[in-house]
Write a protein that binds this DNA or RNA. Structure first.
Lengths: 188, 188
DNA sequence: CAAAAAATTTAACATAGGATAAAAAGTCAT
DNA sequence: ATGACTTTTTATCCTATGTTAAATTTTTTG
């Protein structure tokens, strides 16, 4: 997915704004396993995924919980870095060899303060992500793990192909064993 | 809490921008029980809470789940209305007689497109809310209901005073009965 | 202030999903 | 291909939390 398409899919902006963004964007190819963000550290970068898949996870109390999965066209940031300039609470790694567009946070910040279209573009990005996360929080409350699995299967079948089940499990909010049970249809 | 303080607490903006916002702001006093947003409907307003308390909730499968609780200084919006101009999925009601600042979405939208400071202010608002929701989602995974209750007790003791426990329960992601058990310290 | 209504707690029982461990299946390197 | 390692499934047992209903307590209202 090309950078221009990614930008306009988040929120359409005039060509001039796209050009400004492209000027500070660098394309990088990185191998599977590469860590983009590390818990406890500050990274001054933002990425867009041209090709590949990415996992954000948190390690706590001996468990590894997947917070988010990203694919082509998604924006990869560590919220604490991006919003508050503070150390990340999560790790973000590449699950496949990937091609990414990289922008430094300070360049992006500079553009936000200088171009109103980009400022509104950044606003839309955060707003859209906000809805997604709120919907996930609500789904945890209203639906069974098996329903959440079936929803994922319906809406994002490719994720299930490309991401190992242990990661999917905690993304859905259950243990791997439990997800395995769900899949084998003990329930339903 | 005065409108100027609310605005600058979200993200500081120049006085000129505050003035623009204030020009389109109206102060309204509304009684307890008043519905600000209704599921399935579009409302073209945004509110800031000067005084009072507010609850956002969703009714589904015979259960009423509290999504969010707001108090003095908080911004009250329906995400689907605000971001996508679509019908709300939640209801939002006043839990106390309240005083609010009201702005029409179209006025706000107009300011976002005209004033870069306000556009970035709107961006910061969404970003900050995004972090809060993501942290709640993560807490659901890592902590027991009793821990989440104790965290709320520590960080927001006033909410527990002002909001009935049935609402608090689903906000924490448990049933009222379960919260009652937690409080009576069967656990811990 | 008494009656009615609403909110909270308590009790008894049920279950989705967690924990641990072992078996099976799949992947990778030599 | 063969063995080593990783991932997924299966099995057993267990617990936090759900469900329903009844008993209290608190709040509201005539």
């Amino acid at each position: 997915m090309e950078i221009e398409a990614i930008i306009n899919q988040i929120y359409p902006v005039p060509e001039a704004a796209v050009v400004k963004l492209k000027q500070v964007t660098e394309e990088v190819t990185l191998p599977k396993g590469q860590i983009l963000f590390e818990a406890g550290k500050i990274s001054r970068n933002v990425y867009f995924l041209k090709k590949g898949i990415v996992r954000s996870y948190k390690f706590q109390q001996d468990t590894d919980v997947t917070i988010w999965l990203g694919r082509e066209g998604d924006t990869v940031i560590s919220l604490k870095n991006y919003v508050e300039d503070k150390p990340a609470y999560e790790n973000i790694e590449l699950l496949e060899d990937s091609i990414l567009y990289r922008i430094s946070s300070s360049d992006l910040q500079g553009l936000f303060n200088e171009d109103i279209f980009l400022a509104n573009w950044g606003r839309k990005f955060a707003e859209t992500e906000l809805i997604k996360v709120e919907e996930r929080l609500i789904a945890r409350q209203f639906s069974l793990a098996s329903d959440r699995y079936n929803d994922l299967l319906r809406d994002n079948p490719d994720l299930l192909q490309r991401v190992q089940l242990g990661y999917i499990a905690s993304y859905l909010g259950v243990t791997q064993v439990s997800l395995s049970r769900i899949r084998s249809n003990i329930y339903k």
